[in-house]
Write a protein that binds this DNA or RNA. Structure first.
Length: 224
DNA sequence: GCCCAGGTGGGTA
DNA sequence: TACCCACATGGG
C-alpha cells in the first residue's frame, strides 16, 4: 500500500519524461508566491490569476503596498479568487507580521532554520500545512514536500495511499523516501498538479497516460 | 442549475 | 481523533 523509494522515483521519472521540467511557481517574486499560495486555497488557479492580475495592475504586489490598501479595496481586487473577506484578512495579517516581526524581509526570514520557519508560518492565521510548505518551497527555495488534494488523489488512485492518511503522514512519506532536494520537490509537486490538470475526462486531447494504461487522474476518462 | 476547485479554522462528540 | 460547517467566485 505505501510506496517504496523506487515507486516514487519511477513515477517522478515518468511524469518528467512526459511534461518536462516545469520550473514552478508561476510568479515573479517570493512575495507573489505567498499571495498566490493564500489566494489559491480551495480555489481554481484560473480565478487566482484574475486576482493576481488585478493586484499587479494596482501596484499592490509588494508587502508595503498591499498592507497599505484598505480592506475594502483589497477585497475588491481579489474578489475573483473567492473567499475574498477571509483572504483579505489573511493577506493583511501576513504583511503585518512581516513588518512587525521580520523587518529583515521575507527572503531573509525564509532562509532561516527550516523547521523553525515552518512552525512560525503554521502559527499565522490562514496558513495551514499546504500553504506553509508552498511558501517554504516556492518562495524560500527550501526542501519541503507540498501535499495537496491532487497528490492525495493521484497516489490513492495508483493504489499507493489509502487516502485517509493525514497531511503530515503523506509529507513524511515523500520526505523519508526521497533526497532532500529542493529542485526535485519543486518539480515533483508541479508535475503532480500538471498531471491532474491534464485529467482525461476534461481534456479529450490528453495524450497516453505516463503512469498507467487507464489514466489514474481521470477515473472514468478514456483509457490511454 | 449543479458541482468543483492546488485549504483553513472553529465547533462538536 | 473524526467529522461538520462557513467561507465565495467563475467555469465546465
Amino acid at each position: 500500500m505505501t510506496p517504496t523509494d523506487d515507486d516514487l522515483h519511477d513515477i517522478f521519472r515518468r511524469l518528467l519524461a512526459r511534461f518536462g521540467p516545469l520550473h514552478w511557481w508561476p510568479a515573479q517574486t517570493p512575495f507573489e508566491v505567498v499571495v498566490g499560495a493564500i489566494l489559491t486555497q480551495n480555489t481554481a488557479w484560473r480565478n487566482v490569476g484574475y486576482a493576481i492580475a488585478n493586484l499587479h495592475a494596482a501596484g499592490a504586489l509588494a508587502p508595503g503596498a498591499l498592507g497599505g490598501l484598505t480592506p475594502e479595496r483589497l477585497q475588491r481586487l481579489i474578489r475573483p479568487a473567492g473567499f475574498f473577506r477571509q483572504k483579505t484578512e489573511r493577506l493583511q495579517a501576513f504583511v503585518r507580521y512581516l513588518d512587525e516581526v521580520h523587518p529583515e524581509g521575507l527572503e531573509t526570514w525564509l532562509a532561516g532554520d527550516r523547521h523553525a520557519v515552518r512552525a512560525e508560518l503554521l502559527g499565522l492565521t490562514g496558513i495551514g500545512p499546504e500553504t506553509a510548505d508552498s511558501i517554504l518551497l516556492y518562495a524560500g527555495d527550501r526542501p519541503t514536500f507540498v501535499v495537496d488534494a491532487y497528490t492525495r488523489r493521484l497516489f490513492t488512485r495508483l493504489g499507493l495511499l489509502r487516502g485517509s492518511e493525514s497531511y503530515e503522514e503523506i509529507r513524511a512519506l515523500f520526505m523519508t523516501r526521497l533526497p532532500a532536494d529542493t529542485d526535485l520537490f519543486n518539480e515533483y509537486h508541479a508535475l503532480i498538479v500538471e498531471t491532474c490538470k491534464s485529467f482525461c475526462r476534461k481534456r479529450p486531447d490528453c495524450p497516453p497516460c505516463p503512469l498507467q494504461p487507464r489514466c489514474p487522474t481521470g477515473g472514468t476518462g478514456p483509457a490511454r
